[in-house]
Each structure stands twice: as structure tokens, then as C-alpha cells.
């Protein structure tokens, strides 16, 4: 473990910047989001979660797939340096592991390289994740429903705890351990520090909501496809994409060309299953024309379909969608409603 004085963080970040492009929570207007920083002074040491998720670092809202012109196609390349992300909470670190199953591992199609996403891989492979303990979970947090914990280290290369005056860094993965061993300026940690961390963890955990057992959710979802509950849940949804855009795990996208004449680029853009045009076909036929069908798709994708394909839920309980929904369609309440729902056809679960 390495102990760094907060006042000396910049030295560490500069050391990190020698090998990495560093992203960190920073002010973007009135909100906090992950962006590329030039010095430690830009880091926002937010006590709460960032408003926008870090998925943007690896899966940007808009990304050039290639440029085209008379000279042919040109694929953008990444700069030499790999990406390091400072200040990620475990809900976000977990989300990257989920997204990597979709983009990186091509889990469903293991033998074929064509199912791996080169744009994701060139950023995600070789990245260094600083997973920072979440000292003060918000009232909208529910990571503990998904086996998460504010002090969990899963997915971290380096685990960071903010103890007030210091950051205490612990190498978790081989990559993280190797990197930390190269940094010589830190102090040794003491028993006092470890006690402090234990205390912080205890306090953080006390802020979490009561755990809801979500294991039965998958099976329950299988049985309620045709039930009126979806109309009840979706009635107030206005089908904007706020929830899906702030979500660290939502990953639907659109591919679109921009250009004039023979010059231009093909880009991919975040898209949302909430939008009416998402599935509309050129013929006018729309398999998910009703708002109810779209809300069901979003919820089912998170708590049923993804489980079917990747053996886990596509949600980390970060609570961002709960915070931004303009009509307070609270996904925690949806989960509870589904779990409590009594089937109308007397089907036994």
C-alpha cells in the first residue's frame, strides 16, 4: 500500500501522466463528469457520484468509425498512451466489466474476432482503473442490491481510499501492483490508517438501503411479459433518453454518416431504446411502437435478457437514472413492484 498526502497528489498524477492519459471526475458546467485532465488540480474530489457516468471515456457519445474521401477509408488511431481513470466508484468499475462482456470479450461468440469491438478494445485494453472507495453513498444508491459495496475492489487495478488528509492506494491487479511499485515517493501505511479505512467502510455501509433480494427477479420477469403491470409502470414515462444516457451500463448505439459529397465520416452515437424511432423500420413497421413496449424492453434488458446472455444483471445500482428522471420513474420502485407483483393468471413462480 502507498500513502499519499492530498497536497502531494499532483506529483503522483504527474507520474501517472508519463505513461497514461488521465481521466478523472471534473467540473463540466454545473455538473461533474469524467474528462481528460492536465493536472491534479482539475480533479473534483466529489463526495458524491458524478452526474454522468465514465462509460463516455471508453464508449464516447459520438465516435468516428472511419473517415472517407477519394483516397479511401481512414480509421482513427489512438495516441500512444493508454488510458488511466482516477476516482471511479465501484458501481462504475463494475459497469465497465459488464460493457467489456459486450464489446471486448464477444462472450456469446467466443471464436470469432469479428464480434469484438476494435474501438472499445483500443481504449479499454491496457487501461488502468483507480477504483476509489465511496465514503458517502447517496440516498439514491443501491449497489448493495447487486452484490456491490462502496468499498468493493472488484474490477480495480488500484484501490484508493480517501482518508481525509491522505489517499491510500492498494495495488489489486498485477498491472496495478506493478505500477504502484514504481512510485517511490509515497509513505508507508500504518495500523492507524487501516483502522481509519475500516471505520470509513462501516460508516459508508450504514448509509446503504436495506438489501432487496433480487435473485427471483429474473424468473419473475420471465412470467410477466404480458401482464398489465407494464402499463402501470410506463404510464408516466415520457420516453426521453435521460435514464439511458446517464446509465453506466446502457450501450445501444446508432451508426450515422456525416459529410458532403465524397468526403465525410461514419460515426456511431449513443442511442436509446426509449426513443420511438429506435426500432422503427423503413417500411413504417415498428416492433416497439408503444411506450409500454419500450419501457418493458429497458427493464427486461437489464434484469432478464442480459442475465440470459451473460449471467448477471445489467445494473450496478448507481442510482443515476433515479436522480435524473423528469417524472420520477424510480427503477428501485419498478424492481420492488415486479417482485411484489401477483400474477393475474394464477401462475406459480
Amino acid at each position: 500500500m502507498v500513502k499519499i498526502k492530498k497536497t502531494e497528489l499532483n506529483e503522483f498524477i504527474e507520474f501517472l501522466m508519463k505513461d497514461y492519459d488521465v481521466y478523472s471526475p471534473a467540473d463540466v458546467g454545473k455538473k461533474a463528469a469524467f474528462k481528460k485532465i492536465k493536472s491534479a488540480f482539475e480533479i473534483k474530489h466529489a463526495i458524491t457520484n458524478t452526474h454522468l457516468s465514465p462509460k463516455d471515456v471508453f464508449f464516447p457519445q459520438s465516435e468516428v468509425l472511419f473517415q472517407y474521401s477519394d483516397d479511401g477509408l481512414k480509421v482513427p488511431k489512438r495516441e500512444e498512451k493508454a488510458i488511466a481513470v482516477w476516482g471511479m466508484r465501484n458501481c462504475d468499475t463494475s459497469s465497465l466489466l459488464m460493457l467489456n462482456k459486450v464489446f471486448g470479450d464477444a462472450h456469446q461468440m467466443p471464436d470469432k474476432d469479428m464480434y469484438k469491438d476494435p474501438y472499445w478494445k483500443m481504449k479499454y485494453d491496457n487501461c488502468l482503473i483507480f477504483n476509489q472507495a465511496c465514503n458517502e453513498p447517496l440516498s439514491t444508491c443501491f449497489c448493495n442490491w447487486f452484490e456491490g459495496n462502496p468499498f468493493a475492489k472488484k474490477g480495480a487495478d488500484i484501490f484508493v481510499v480517501d482518508t481525509g488528509d491522505h489517499f491510500i492506494l492498494e495495488g489489486i491487479s498485477d498491472k496495478g501492483k506493478t505500477f504502484l511499485s514504481k512510485y517511490k515517493a509515497g509513505e508507508e501505511t500504518t495500523k492507524v490508517d487501516l483502522n481509519k479505512i475500516a471505520k470509513l467502510k462501516e460508516t459508508a455501509e450504514s448509509y446503504l438501503p436495506d438489501v432487496v433480494d433480487i435473485k427471483p427477479l429474473f424468473n419473475k420477469m420471465n412470467k410477466i411479459w404480458d401482464e398489465p403491470i407494464w402499463e402501470e409502470i410506463s404510464a408516466k414515462c415520457i420516453n426521453c433518453g435521460a435514464c439511458t444516457f446517464v446509465c453506466p451500463t446502457c450501450h445501444c448505439f446508432d451508426v450515422s454518416d456525416e459529410g458532403k459529397g465524397k468526403k465525410g465520416q461514419r460515426i456511431r452515437l449513443w442511442d436509446s431504446c426509449m426513443f420511438q424511432i429506435f426500432t422503427r423500420e423503413a417500411s413504417g413497421h415498428n416492433p416497439r411502437g408503444l411506450s409500454t413496449q419500450r419501457v418493458r424492453q429497458r427493464i427486461m434488458h437489464k434484469y432478464n435478457y442480459f442475465m440470459d446472455n451473460y449471467e448477471q444483471y445489467l445494473c450496478t445500482g448507481c442510482g443515476r437514472c433515479v436522480q435524473v428522471c423528469p417524472v420520477n420513474l424510480d427503477i428501485r420502485e419498478v424492481i420492488k413492484k415486479v417482485l411484489d407483483y401477483k400474477l393475474s393468471k394464477n401462475e406459480e413462480i
Partner: peptide
Amino acid sequence: IGKCGRCG
């Protein structure tokens, strides 16, 4: 390639 989500 099973990523963009449209044809689910």
C-alpha cells in the same frame, strides 16, 4: 454484430 441493441 450483436452490440447496438436495435434488433433485440
